[in-house]
Structure formats: C-alpha cells, structure tokens
Amino acid sequence: MGLPKFNYVAPETVQEACQILEKLGGQAKVMAGGTDLLIKMKHGALRPKTIVGLRKIKELRKISFRKNQGLFIGAMALLEEVASHPKVKKLYPAVAYAASQTATVQIRNMGTVVGNICNAAPSADNIPSLMAFGAELIIASPNGERRILLENFFKGPGEVNLNRGELVKGVLVPPPPEGSGVSYQFISQRSKVDIAAVCVAAMVVIDKGRTRDVKIVLGAVAPTPIRALEAEGLLRGKKLADRSIQKAAEQASQEARPITDMRATSEYRRLMVAVLTKRALLEARQMALAS
C-alpha cells in the first residue's frame, strides 16, 4: 500500500514547529513515530499536505523524574523507552506496563506514548493509567505553554483539544501519593497481541484503612476514555472491601457506553468492564497496601 504525496518538514525546535503549524493550520499534521498517522494516510483516511516531523527536536525525547514535580515523558519518548525506564517501572508500574503491552516490539520502537494519546483512539492503551495517575499535558504554542488535565483533552475519537499552532510537548505525571496503587487491565478477545476490546485503569489511595481517593478509567467503551465517576463515588471514603469492589465494578459497567464493532459486541464490552474493573481495583488495593 502506498502513501499519498505530501511535503515533509523537520523543525529543530518546538518554537519553530509551532510556527509552522500556526502557518499551515489544518493542512499540516504533526508526526511522532507515525505508526498511527501513516496508517491512516495509507488507508486514505487522512491526506495532510505537510507532515511536521518532530524527530529533530532533541529535547522531546526526554524522560525525567523529579521528586516534587513527578514524571515527565517527552513527546518523542518511545513506548519501549517508557516501558523499560527504571524510574517509571518502579514508581509508575502501571504506566510502564501499559506501554509494554502496546502493540509489538517494532511498533514500540517507533511509536510514542504521546502519539498514542494524541491519536485519541478510545482503545489507546496508555491513556487510562495516565489518567488514573492524574496526568497533565504540556502544550506548546508560538506564544508559550499551557497545561491541561489529560482527562479534559479528548473531544471524540481522534479529536483533541488542540488549537492552531499547538503541539503536545509531553506528559507530566504527578508523584504517586503515599499509600496509592494503580492497576491497568485490558482484554482482547482474539489473541494475546491485539488492540484492547476493553481497558480499565484503577487508582486507589488507602489511608488508615479507608479509601481516601479513587479513580476508575474506562477505555474502548465510549467515544473517549472516561471516568466511572459514580462507581468511584461508591468507594470514596469507605473501606475497600471485596463486596464494595464488586458493587463498584457493576456500577462502572452501567456507566460504560460501549458500541459493537469488529473487536467485540457492546454486550461483551459491558460485561468485561465489570470484570476488569474488579480485577483492577483488587490489584490496586494490593499495591496500595504493600506500598
């Protein structure tokens, strides 16, 4: 399958990139690894006139951790680099795990976590756990930077809150709170190597036996990844007993708005939300208690 024709530019700074994007507007597309973008172009779903490659912007490849600020994953950090980064593995195991379960070795050597986010697929593997950690995006534009909570970034499948001239510089993940645990669970029906039919991340913070904070994020069951707010409400401030986990899981399944597609029917997805939410909460609880 051939690619349609386009121009290619590779700016060397974020500033320069933003200026190009500002000038070209909708006719240009940012490219990180290209593993989503080029496929969409091959299938004819996208036909940008210009591709703005981020490869030459050295600072974007960075992954760093600072105790008070947390983890920064630059826009060009590869999935594989995130998956194998010692600090990420230790302090954000669900983030490393999600990255390590995305696609295949080769695609992880090309694709990025930020690309996975910006592609805004409802099934994206890396979004739920980052949302559960309360991650923010750092967005650059010709006039400076802004921050946005990851969960406010998505408008619909493939649609995100970015204005003309803007690009995502990276994700900032706050330091994990004391007594917290985050688990990522996903299921695909057909193979161990597959796009998720349903994915769920759960974060709990346990303080003196009570659930001080909880987040449940559901993927692939709505136009964007969503929080199961009512299910969270059932747990907040309570003891995290098996029974309440089961109840919350059932509630989450009610909050899901799944569709039927090639990968699963809506009924199956709904059932799986309950199963995966339960498993995620159980694992998160275990991690929280062990921390």
Binding site: A10, L38, I39, R55, Q106, N109, M110
Partner: peptide, 27 residues
C-alpha cells in the same frame, strides 16, 4: 502487509528493530 502488522519488513535502525513499511525514508 505494509501496515506494521506482520513484521516481514523488519530491519534494525541504529540498533532498534522497526517495521520498514511504516518508516519514512526521509527520516
């Protein structure tokens, strides 16, 4: 396949395995 799924086009770039069908030559 040309879409990154089968790996028949795998090569190493600077030591990393990638699918050459999804890699732009300009890069």
């Amino acid at each position: 396949c040309g879409t990154g799924d089968c790996g028949a086009c795998t090569v190493l770039v600077d030591g990393r395995s990638v699918t050459s069908c999804l890699t732009l030559a300009v890069e």
